[in-house]
């Protein structure tokens, strides 16, 4: 697989601005989620994708509406790219009665069959076989959709990673797996996760393409993912993309990440995905101060609206109906 710039040539100025909008939206959304957690209004786990914006947005932007998204917990922005709205996401994080899971699960752990978004579970890697199963159904029905799933560099050691790729590669399923290598799995640094040169080398064992990319460059992420998506669409099977980023905050909101050297964070801060992209857009004269303010104001008011809406929405009332574990046939 080569970084293909053909796909960038097809991007319009509007697309460039959309990428900027979604990356900024993701960061603002996560900031507001973090605030809600600190205020005690979100009671469950909050996992930040700060530093991961280019990877989450660039990859999801490579999908069509008929494609399936299986995001991880640091990909909140991918939900928005796929069409999810802020109000629904806020309801879900706040455990409200009208959230997609009606309060039975939190954070990004919901499914939206219409938008074709299937959230993760907390067991890392457990969704890769499930994503492979959706890819199998696509092949079964002779459809042209693809499935995009994510895993961390730490999670790539889980057995399901291997099983799902062994399974999908032999059957040539339309699955794209992004390994978000963000340097830390909870507190464990990357050198304790593998002695291999790079995580994408794992692809060799399955006879599929594997590539390592700069996960802070949204255009590189987009074009490489797009190439893998189109390859899968043509029936050529799965790909692995290792997207190298930095987890700029702790594992979860309660973790201050004391174990990450300040100098390392500082080094990565120079490559902040949003700032990098912003200056590129300024250089290309696609973005200027006035458009930038317009976009950021729009985001602020959208988030404010979602916050007001979700904080005023009712919590679930326990009822028998909410505890059903089987679908009853009529």
């Amino acid at each position: 697989m080569q970084t293909s710039s053909i796909y960038l040539q097809n991007l319009t100025d509007k697309d460039y601005l959309k990428l900027y909008y979604f990356m900024s939206l993701m960061r603002q959304f996560e900031n507001s989620i973090l605030n809600l957690y600190r205020q005690g209004r979100i009671v469950g786990g909050v996992y930040s994708g700060m530093g991961n914006e280019a990877t989450a947005i660039g990859s999801a932007f490579a999908l069509d509406s008929n494609d399936y998204l299986f995001p991880m917990h640091r990909d909140s922005g991918a939900h928005f790219v796929k069409g999810q709205n802020l109000r629904t996401m806020m309801l879900q994080y706040l455990g409200r009665a009208d959230s997609p899971t009606k309060g039975r699960d939190g954070s990004g752990h919901y499914a939206d069959p219409i938008l074709r978004i299937y959230g993760n579970i907390s067991h890392l890697g457990a969704m890769i076989p499930v994503a492979a199963g959706v890819a199998l159904a696509i092949k079964y029905r002779n459809e042209k959709s693809v499935v995009l799933n994510y895993i961390g560099e730490g999670g790539s050691n889980v057995g399901d990673f291997h099983e799902a790729l062994a399974f999908s590669s032999v059957l040539k399923l339309p699955l794209i797996l992004i390994i978000e290598n963000n340097q830390y799995a909870y507190s464990t640094p990357v050198y304790k996760q593998t002695i291999a040169r790079q995580f994408s080398d794992r692809a060799i064992g399955y006879g599929i393409p594997g590539v390592t990319i700069d996960g802070t460059d949204v255009l590189e992420v987009y074009s490489v993912c797009k190439e893998a998506v189109e390859r899968a669409r043509r029936g050529k099977g799965p790909s692995i993309i290792e997207s190298v980023t930095m987890r700029m905050q702790g594992h979860a909101a309660y973790d201050d990440a004391w174990y990450v050297p300040k100098s390392e964070l500082e080094k990565w801060r120079q490559k902040d995905p949003i700032e990098r992209y912003e200056s590129l857009l300024f250089d290309k004269k696609i973005l200027n101060e006035s458009i930038k303010n317009e976009i950021l104001n729009k985001i602020n008011s959208e988030i404010q609206d979602a916050l007001n809406f979700a904080l005023n929405a009712p919590l679930p009332k326990p009822s028998e109906d909410l505890f059903k574990v089987f679908l009853e046939k009529d």
């Binding site: 499930v130 062994a166 399974f167």
Partner: peptide
């Protein structure tokens, strides 16, 4: 297409069944 010999990977077999069932 309907009788699939799989790799030896029980978790992938069951997980893939879940995925296929999710979409009908």
């Amino acid at each position: 297409n309907r009788v699939i010999d799989t790799v030896i990977a029980e978790s992938a077999i069951v997980g893939a069944a879940i995925g296929a069932a999710l979409v009908g």
